[in-house]
Amino acid sequence: MSQAEAAVRPPALRRLSLFRNETVTLFRRWRTLVLLGVLAAVPVLVGIAVKIETGGGGRGAGAHGGDGPAFVGQVTNNGLFLVFASLAATLPFFLPMAVGVVAGDSIAGEASAGTLRYLLVAPAGRTRLLLAKFTTTLVFCLAATLVVAVSALAVGALLFPLGEVTLISGTTVSLGEGLVRALAIAGVVAASLVGVAALGLFVSTLTGSGIAAMAATVGLLITVQILDQFPQLHAVQPYLFPHYWLSFADLLRDPVYGDQLWRNLALQGLYAAVFGSAAWARFTSRDVTA
């Protein structure tokens, strides 16, 4: 398409084109594919480990409470629980680490490669470019979560029986409703990563080194999760972005407990607003020389 044709395109189409280009570029990178491959391998390893350990023998569906890792004890009775167990296993580290790498590299990686100023020369504008980068990172959050969920569902169906789902509250629902709840849980887990995405985007605007931005984002992620484990810090822990991550287990209750779920979503929205605004303020005022 010529520059003249691009100039007369409606603004909405130009914005969509920028977002599409960023998304296509992200998912064509080998690093992104490797991250998704590692995430897809986690349910395979968990499923095989459970199969070997139990020898295929089942355990009572109500043998454990509602904590995330306890889903492992229910996998042998119903392969759908491998989805919940895998999301609980990847959420503390693997999923946020992958998002942190993508978010941290979003702006700093372009500066490090020397392509950032060329992106800004195009009629995109700093605000629109930053928004496209953040939206693309959110798409990756959803894609990464779905990769884990789909991989777990396939492995669970292959290694274990599928059928009616006994919720952690003791209620039995159909497999169809169980799949709907699994999809809702995947959506909540993806939304739980918004805070990491916003934090990583802000860090990415502070440096011109993609590696430094990725390392700093992952380092902050690990530090915050360590702080969330100290009982002495109970007063500030509800404001730490990982604090309510495992609240997705409440979607496996009947009725659903929505208190911590809403707190989690509100907290992620707060982090997106605060660090997204900070990233915008930094990026629109910095001198771009690379």
Results as ranks from 00 to 15, higher is better:
Met1Gly: 06
Gln3Cys: 02
Glu5Thr: 08
Ala6Lys: 13
Arg9Leu: 15
Leu13Gln: 15
Arg15Leu: 09
Leu18Phe: 00
Asn21Gln: 13
Val24Arg: 11
Leu26Thr: 07
Arg29Gly: 06
Trp30Cys: 01
Trp30Arg: 14
Trp30Val: 11
Arg31Met: 09
Val34Ala: 12
Leu36Ala: 05
Leu36Phe: 00
Val38Gly: 03
Val42Gln: 05
Val50Cys: 07
Lys51Asn: 08
Gly58Ser: 13
Ala63Ser: 14
Ala63Glu: 14
Ala63Gly: 15
His64Trp: 06
Asp67Met: 11
Gly68Thr: 06
Ala70Ile: 05
Gly73Met: 00
Gly73Leu: 05
Val75Pro: 12
Ser86Gln: 03
Ser86Pro: 09
Leu91Glu: 09
Met97Trp: 02
Val99Gln: 02
Val99Asp: 00
Gly100Gln: 02
Gly104Trp: 06
Asp105Ser: 09
Ala108Val: 11
Ala108Tyr: 09
Gly109Asp: 10
Gly114Ala: 11
Gly114Ile: 10
Leu119Tyr: 12
Val121Trp: 01
Leu130Ile: 04
Lys133Glu: 12
Phe134Pro: 08
Thr136Glu: 15
Thr137Val: 15
Val148Thr: 14
Val150Pro: 13
Ser151Trp: 11
Ala154Lys: 02
Val155Cys: 08
Val155Ile: 13
Leu158Asn: 00
Phe160Val: 03
Leu162Ser: 13
Val165Ile: 08
Ser169Lys: 06
Val173Asn: 00
Gly178Glu: 05
Leu179Arg: 08
Val180Trp: 09
Ala182Thr: 07
Ala186Asp: 07
Gly187Gln: 11
Ala191Asp: 05
Leu193Phe: 02
Ala197Gly: 04
Ala197Tyr: 04
Ala198Gln: 03
Ala198Thr: 01
Leu199Trp: 07
Gly200Gln: 10
Thr205Pro: 02
Leu206Thr: 13
Thr207Trp: 03
Thr207Val: 06
Ile211Cys: 00
Ala213Asp: 06
Ala213Ser: 13
Ala215Met: 11
Ala216Gln: 05
Ala216Met: 06
Asp228Val: 04
Gln229Thr: 11
Ala235Gln: 14
Gln237Asn: 14
Pro238Asp: 01
Tyr239Thr: 03
Leu240Ile: 11
His243Met: 03
Trp245Val: 01
Leu246Phe: 15
Asp254Tyr: 10
Gln260Thr: 14
Leu265Lys: 09
Ala266Ser: 13
Ala266Asp: 01
Gln268Tyr: 11
Gly269Leu: 11
Tyr271Ala: 10
Ser277Pro: 01
Thr284Ile: 08
Val288Arg: 07
Thr289Ile: 10
